[in-house]
Simulated scan of single mutants.
Amino acid sequence: MGFALLSGWLVSRLLRATRQSRSTLETSAQQKAILDSSDDAIVTITQDGLIRSFNKSAEKMFLWTEDDIIGRNVNILMPEPFKSAHDIYLSRYQLDGNDKRVISKTRELTGVRKDGSEFPMSLTVQKVRRAEPLLFVGFIQDLTEVRDQRNHLAHTKRQYNSLLHGMPGVVWSATLEAAPLTLFVTDNIAELTGYPPEHFRDQHVALNDLIDPEDAPQALQCRQLARTRSEEYAVALRLRTCEDQQVAVVELGRVTTHTDGSARVQALWLRVDSPAWQRLQAYLQRH
């Protein structure tokens, strides 16, 4: 009788352990499926820096298979000098248990693929709480496209600024109001008026304040009419310089209206005695 009870107890424990093992395997499989469905590369490491898990996105990003990289030091994914220093960072964390510069912070770093090629990436590290042994999870995004877009935008901006600042006249933009705000002005405003461009950008001097009072109503009328008709305009004006000298210019511009009802003037001031204006006049007369 005692043997039968003991046998039954052993079978019961074995069945329970089998169910628990099956449940653990199912849970692990579910967790892996979730990780593999992520667009971010997700890498789990131990407190010694050894890789414990490597999802599908990480495989595509770093060109390592999970089977080949599990158990390796995570510094294999880093270039120098970060590769050599990484173990020191982990040791320092184990000593004081706190590194606010890394945990939960997103940083832009450089990653290294299996073939040795480098790429820009963002990394966010989280500590797995209540894990034994201590684990860290890294969420990684490839920033190659973002970097290319930044470079393209920077190049386009340089070309745009070079074009604007290389024009023969002063290019400016301002709101269409009774007291307009200067939104943009090229640096050669100083050559035309004697006022440094910072005075306009800081709103210390208004573009409209430079216009001779007798010409101001005509300028405003042309701008308002251009806004109503959605067409470009040209108006002859006299400007007053910082030395109270008079400069004759032609204002060539257009007015754009935004969805909120606000309007913006985009214009060019050309001196009437400049070669550029004379060439433009000759062109208009021929056409």
Rank of each mutant, 00 (worst) to 15 (best):
Leu14Glu: 02
Ala17Gln: 07
Asp36Lys: 06
Thr44His: 10
Lys32Pro: 00
Ser7Asn: 09
Thr27Gly: 06
Arg19Ala: 02
Leu35Ala: 01
Ala33Asp: 02
Glu26Asn: 09
Gln31Val: 09
Leu25Asn: 11
Ile45Met: 07
Asp36Pro: 05
Asp39Met: 10
Leu25Arg: 15
Ala17Asp: 12
Leu15Met: 12
Arg22Gln: 05
Ser12Met: 12
Thr24Asn: 14
Leu25Val: 09
Ser12Arg: 07
Thr24Tyr: 13
Ser37Cys: 10
Ala33Gln: 04
Asp36Ala: 10
Ser12Lys: 08
Trp9Leu: 15
Ser21Asp: 10
Ser21His: 14
Leu35Ile: 01
Val43Cys: 15
Ile42Gly: 02
Ile42Lys: 02
Ser38Cys: 13
Ser38Ala: 15
Leu35Ser: 00
Val11Glu: 14
Trp9Val: 03
Leu25Pro: 04
Ser28Asn: 14
Leu6Trp: 06
Thr46Leu: 15
Ile34Gln: 07
Arg16Asp: 02
Arg22Lys: 10
Asp36Arg: 07
Gln47Gly: 15
Val43Lys: 09
Ile45Gln: 04
Gln47Cys: 09
Lys32Asn: 01
Asp40Lys: 13
Lys32Ala: 01
Thr27Met: 09
Leu14Thr: 00
Gly8Glu: 02
Asp48Phe: 08
Ser23Leu: 07
Leu15Ile: 13
Ser12Cys: 11
Ala29Gly: 08
Leu25His: 13
Leu14Ile: 02
Leu35Thr: 01
Ser38His: 06
Ser7Pro: 00
Ser12Pro: 02
Ser7Trp: 08
Trp9His: 10
Ser21Tyr: 12
Ile45Asp: 01
